[in-house]
Design a protein around this nucleic acid. Structure first.
Lengths: 177, 177
DNA sequence: TTAAGTGCAAAGCCTTTGCTGGGAC
DNA sequence: GTCCCAGCAAAGGCTTTGCACTTAA
């Protein structure tokens, strides 16, 4: 059993409580990009003595420590992505909501160049691609879908609860390379 | 006096009420990316007999009609961008919150290629760059800033109020080219 | 020991919506 | 004349927070 996240927490000087250890474990075992509610669900499956407020406080703390990155796939809630998985972007399947990670050096070079052309040094960036799987059998695309795509993909770019600004800008997160 | 947006509304078969005309005018005159509250402020300056609920309903309608695009700069609220300004992305100055529009053919080609490499056809995308102005006098960057950057830039990728999914995914908006 | 974390419930913020009266076509 | 729209206020959904108790170091 690993628990990379707990290790990172300790390295960052985060006081490890029982609840945080569980959340760290859940995060370490996750291979997807869970939102708070999902993290909470997985956490209470291990130990019910944990509240969702603690999950919110913990992801926020880990985000501030640079252990987690907050992602916004336009669903109306945040998702979290451990930074130790490395720098990457996401492609969301608009029909299934499935998220695919990728990285691309050429893209990094291009955006860096764009920023410089505009007189800026790139601090960070957000890139999400939305795509549809290429299928052999050309889909009859005009026909209305009986089953609408998953919520994840259905919600478009969505606003965001204001909430008092609290920490630094995107600068820290994804982007540098 | 122009009012491009009102024209677009009529072309799209949107019933023009007094309130919508005012909002259309505000949008036509805007050169920035106002959020709902800002639109509301500008609208009531012209005619106070308008409620913020109407602004919300109107931007949503215009978004569905493809006249507006919803943007999320990670501030906790949505901003709106008339689509007739053409396809573009944004670079946000992390120190001032100022938003700069840009477009780049090379980038478009790169992301299209990325999607294809992953077995997808690109439906849309979201790209935001966060950068810091390049200054002649090399800034002493470790020194803490007396004045923190504007809220706009300070808030990182932020969650998003869930709200029942309502229309199609990002597909429609920015991205295609 | 003692500062920090946790639970619970209430509050906050942006956004949506039910309902009633009003207006566009 | 009808169906859609606007206002208002309440509700909704995610997230934060005040307070009293518990716990890590």
């Amino acid at each position: 059993m690993e628990n990379r996240i707990e290790r990172l927490c300790i390295e960052s000087g985060v006081k490890m409580t029982g609840q945080r250890r569980i959340i760290a474990r859940v995060l370490s075992e996750a291979t997807d990009h869970p939102n708070v509610e999902e993290l909470y669900r997985r956490a209470i499956a291990i130990d019910p003595r944990i509240s969702i407020a603690t999950v919110y406080r913990t992801v926020r703390l880990l985000e501030e420590k640079g252990i987690l990155e907050r992602r916004d796939f336009g669903e109306g809630r945040a998702r979290y992505d451990p930074t130790d998985r490395g720098h990457h972007h996401h492609l969301i399947d608009v029909d299934t909501g499935k998220v695919i990670e990728f990285e691309d050096e050429e893209h990094e070079a291009v955006v860096k160049r764009i920023a410089e052309r505009l007189g800026f040094t790139l601090v960070s960036q957000r890139l999400e691609l939305f795509g549809r799987r290429v299928k052999a059998e050309a889909a009859r695309e005009d026909q209305p879908r009986a089953e609408p795509p998953r919520a994840a993909a259905r919600r478009p770019a969505r606003p965001i609860p204001l909430a008092r600004a609290r920490r630094a800008p995107p600068p820290r997160g994804a982007g540098e390379r």
